[in-house]
Computed example of a mutant assay.
Amino acid sequence: MSTVSKNEFRDAMSSVCAAVNIITTSGDSGRGGFTATAMCSVSDEPPSLLVCMNRNSAQSALFFENGRFCVNVLAGDQASLSGHFAGGMQDMEERYAAADWTDLETGCPVLKDALVSFDCELSEVHEAGSHNILIGKVVGIVRSENNSALAYFDRQYLNPAMALSQE
């Protein structure tokens, strides 16, 4: 059986449209955050979702030690914020200074203008290839009145609501 190269796989995955999320944590071990498109629901009983995080990330231990995270689904006008949390800017205070934040039950940072935010307690971690799969039990949800989502497709940000309004 033939194998698929890393570059072939990445090129193919660029054809998959995904929501853009900022995953945050805060607790005794400190505050962290990163941008991710690998997020989805797992179950509605109990309400839970998963996020994939590179195992080599300097923040991995921080997320495990805090035992909680928040998935902030970005609105259509938040592409620049995604860039702040994508890893180019290493200073966490600078990342957080780019937006307004609050917190919910877990104390994790919740983006005030996010499309929707899911406050989670870390319930399981699984290893898969180069990543850890974080499974979180959802303990709180905040939805905004904004109905414009930020999507990532073909290695660029898109605002589907803008495309629909131009038709």
Results as ranks from 00 to 15, higher is better:
31 R>E: 11
32 G>W: 12
32 G>A: 14
33 G>C: 10
33 G>S: 08
35 T>P: 10
35 T>A: 12
37 T>E: 06
37 T>P: 02
37 T>W: 12
37 T>M: 08
37 T>G: 12
38 A>D: 09
38 A>W: 11
40 C>P: 00
40 C>A: 14
42 V>I: 15
42 V>K: 06
43 S>W: 12
43 S>C: 14
44 D>P: 01
44 D>T: 09
45 E>Y: 06
45 E>I: 09
45 E>P: 00
46 P>V: 05
46 P>W: 09
47 P>F: 03
49 L>W: 09
49 L>G: 06
49 L>K: 07
50 L>M: 03
51 V>K: 01
51 V>D: 01
51 V>C: 03
52 C>E: 02
52 C>A: 03
53 M>Y: 01
54 N>Q: 11
54 N>R: 12
55 R>G: 11
55 R>Y: 06
56 N>F: 01
56 N>T: 14
57 S>P: 01
57 S>L: 02
57 S>T: 04
58 A>R: 03
58 A>Q: 04
58 A>W: 03
59 Q>L: 14
59 Q>E: 06
59 Q>P: 02
61 A>D: 01
61 A>P: 00
61 A>V: 00
61 A>Q: 04
61 A>R: 02
62 L>S: 03
63 F>T: 11
63 F>H: 08
64 F>K: 13
66 N>G: 05
68 R>D: 02
68 R>L: 09
68 R>I: 03
68 R>T: 12
69 F>H: 12
69 F>W: 13
69 F>I: 05
70 C>N: 12
70 C>W: 02
70 C>E: 05
71 V>M: 14
71 V>I: 14
74 L>H: 09
74 L>Q: 08
75 A>W: 14
77 D>W: 10
77 D>R: 10
77 D>A: 14
79 A>L: 07
80 S>P: 06
81 L>W: 01
81 L>F: 05
82 S>R: 04
82 S>Q: 04
83 G>K: 13
83 G>R: 13
83 G>W: 12
84 H>P: 00
84 H>G: 07
85 F>Q: 02
85 F>D: 04
88 G>Y: 11
88 G>I: 05
89 M>E: 13
89 M>Y: 08
90 Q>E: 13
91 D>G: 07
93 E>N: 15
95 R>K: 15
95 R>M: 09
97 A>N: 12
97 A>M: 10
98 A>W: 04
98 A>C: 10
98 A>V: 07
100 D>M: 07
100 D>W: 00
100 D>V: 10
100 D>I: 02
102 T>I: 15
102 T>A: 06
105 E>F: 04
105 E>L: 13
105 E>W: 06
106 T>G: 11
106 T>A: 11
106 T>E: 11
108 C>N: 07
108 C>L: 04
108 C>P: 03
109 P>I: 14
109 P>S: 15
109 P>R: 11
109 P>M: 14
111 L>Y: 15
111 L>E: 13
111 L>R: 13
113 D>E: 06
113 D>S: 13
114 A>E: 06
115 L>M: 10
116 V>W: 01
116 V>Q: 02
117 S>H: 05
118 F>L: 15
118 F>T: 04
118 F>R: 08
118 F>S: 08
119 D>I: 04
120 C>T: 05
120 C>W: 10
121 E>K: 13
121 E>I: 04
121 E>R: 15
122 L>S: 12
124 E>R: 10
125 V>T: 13
125 V>Q: 07
127 E>R: 11
127 E>H: 07
129 G>F: 11
130 S>P: 05
130 S>Q: 04
130 S>M: 05
131 H>S: 04
132 N>L: 15
132 N>C: 10
